[in-house]
Design a protein around this nucleic acid. Structure first.
Lengths: 172, 172
DNA sequence: ACTGCCATGTAAGACGTTACATGATTAA
DNA sequence: TTAATCATGTAACGTCTTACATGGCAGT
């Protein structure tokens, strides 16, 4: 049920937007917190429209359909922000693999941890790229910087952990 | 598809175990990385058995059915560990909410961040509890301590972030 | 003409959650 | 005998992924 709030939140931030424009936001930033593809976005927008939480406005060139959030939609997403959880718990396959590192030969485990460091460093580089580009500092967009900062910090913490002296713990 | 590897990994770690015993492991430790309920575990065990990755052994008091991993199962989970991703991306509703903090009044936002700190501190306390109890240090269980340490570190990083000076950023 | 990106949608299947359902054993 | 915990399962429903499918417009 979080996808709808992601869409409502984006539409509250950037008034009229097409499904495609929203998709690009997921690819660039939001997707790090809640990934979604076009196959999910278009049907959900139709549902939100049917429920009166968003509405179609005008028309754009290639059959693009811009939407804006309604008063009811804004109330709905605010309600979600206020009442908070309980949310679906987070699932992470990389975290799961840590439990079973002993199944690998020690050198394989070391190699695995190294590859994880690389993966995280790539993510970090993407975050830093976004931090550079995204100089927008109007009130509405400041939350994006808060979210970005959270991403930067936890990613750095993971890298620190992965580069620490754990491999030794995995010897026989 | 990660649930099956979680089950195979657990069965590799603790030889004969019933579905119920595995469930308890999810509740206590594994669930922080990959939650699962009995409604998922029992059908998946049946599938793994049909595929010859685990097998039934003996019987226990109240209709409990102990399983152990087969050679094929061990190979399968090792394969999963080696080849790594691509995994399904992580979804986090709390991370999503950070993007839309501006929808709340500044004092509500501060209150929300405070409640998140509390939630994370509660998780941290649970991790620390597990760290105390779980003194098992046989080879097979050492990976559990690695996973635990990862959880401790990222949770601490999030608390540090949430307690930092962000609220100011959210003023009008 | 062709390539690439813009832009939207659906169908089938995999995966996950909630609710329903049942019975065995132990401790108070 | 009653409550709690052990122990297993299924059905209906919701969400997510993969694959299929289509057309508009711009640049080369």
């Amino acid at each position: 049920m979080s996808l709808r709030y992601a869409l409502l939140g984006l539409l509250a931030t950037e008034q009229p937007a097409t499904g495609y424009a929203l998709l690009k936001h997921f690819e660039r930033t939001l997707g790090y917190a809640w990934p979604a593809g076009h196959y999910q976005i278009y049907p959900e927008l139709a549902r939100l429209r049917d429920e009166g939480l968003i509405r179609r406005v005008g028309m754009e060139p290639r059959g693009a359909k811009p939407y804006e959030i309604t008063k009811a939609g804004l109330e709905e997403v605010r309600r979600w922000m206020r009442q908070g959880g309980p949310d679906r718990p987070v699932r992470s396959a990389p975290a799961l693999r840590l439990f079973f590192l002993w199944l690998l030969e020690p050198d394989e485990a070391v190699e695995y941890l190294r590859s994880e460091v690389e993966r995280h460093k790539a993510v970090l580089a993407e975050y830093e790229e976004i931090a550079k580009e995204d100089v927008a500092d109007v009130r509405k967009q400041r939350s994006f910087r808060v979210a970005l900062e959270a991403g930067l910090r936890t990613t750095r913490a993971r890298i620190e952990f992965l580069e620490g002296p754990k491999p030794a713990t995995l010897e026989p």
